[in-house]
């Protein structure tokens, strides 16, 4: 069942066309990656999907409802973790509830049981400045989850992390995504990240940016997909598409 349908979305900035005629859809429970070179319009597309930016043409349907220009309909995690430095982690994570008007105590109680599941147990009273990059990212992800919307938009969620932490986060993300039945559309610059985490990959390219190709990732039954021949072939294919 389709959760998100993007129909012929076009956007311009100061007379220059950024993206043109972008169309795709995301099924419920799917993890889809949007990959493309810098400046191709991925973040612009995310801003349109989150309602922060209104396209010059096209529609964005969420469960069949046109949500163009409407904020507060999807859970959006920006490129940086964007944790508020002046709030403790529990207050950062419970921010979506506070914005909905819930008192601080109740909002804290709502998020409290999830700290263990998100791997940041014991950080409730800490400030973001006291946490490592990986933990901050988990906290930001946890906050995004509590927006409570069916669709999660993650803009390069792991780009700021070192290689070891990234690998750790991939495994953690796959696990939590299954546990919570998340529907996610994420942006990435990493071929490995795209192939490890997603069910489908949308390759963006050109000027103005368009969806050049859609690749369905079939992982098979091997324990470690990244060591398979298929993985290497997917990687080659993606690389050649991005270099075109």
């Amino acid at each position: 069942m389709k959760l998100l349908e993007v129909e012929n979305v076009t956007q311009e900035y100061e007379g220059t066309r950024i993206i043109e005629g972008v169309s795709f859809s995301v099924e419920k429970g799917e993890t889809v990656c949007l990959i493309g070179t810098s400046g191709v319009g991925k973040t612009t597309l995310f801003q349109i999907l989150s309602g922060l930016n209104v396209p010059v043409e096209g529609r964005v349907l969420l469960n069949g409802e046109n949500v163009v220009g409407a904020t507060g309909k999807v859970s959006y995690m920006l490129q940086k973790d964007m944790l508020l430095p002046f709030k403790t982690i529990e207050d950062n994570v419970s921010l979506p509830y506070r914005i909905k008007g819930m008192p601080r105590k109740s909002a804290r109680e709502k998020v409290s049981p999830y700290f263990g599941q998100f791997g940041i147990e014991g950080t409730q009273k800490k400030y973001p400045g006291q946490l490592s990059g990986g933990m901050r990212q988990r906290a930001a992800f946890m906050r995004t989850y509590f927006f409570g919307h069916e669709l999660m938009l993650l803009d390069e969620p792991f780009s700021a992390l070192d290689e070891i932490t990234k690998q750790e986060m991939y495994a953690w993300y796959v696990k939590i995504s299954k546990e919570l039945s998340l529907t996610t559309l994420f942006i990435s610059h990493s071929l490995e990240e795209a192939l490890t985490l997603s069910d489908r990959i949308l390759v963006m390219g050109g000027k103005p940016g368009v969806i050049k190709e859609e690749i369905v990732v079939e992982r098979g039954s091997e324990e470690d997909f990244t060591t398979t021949q298929r993985f290497t072939e997917y990687k080659k294919r993606l690389k050649s598409l991005l270099l075109q």
């Binding site: 922060l52 904020t71 507060g72 309909k73 959006y76 920006l78 964007m82 921010l95 909905k100 927006f147």
Partner: peptide, 8 residues
Amino acid sequence: DLMRSMGA
């Protein structure tokens, strides 16, 4: 932007 996306 993040706050706006949350509907604030």
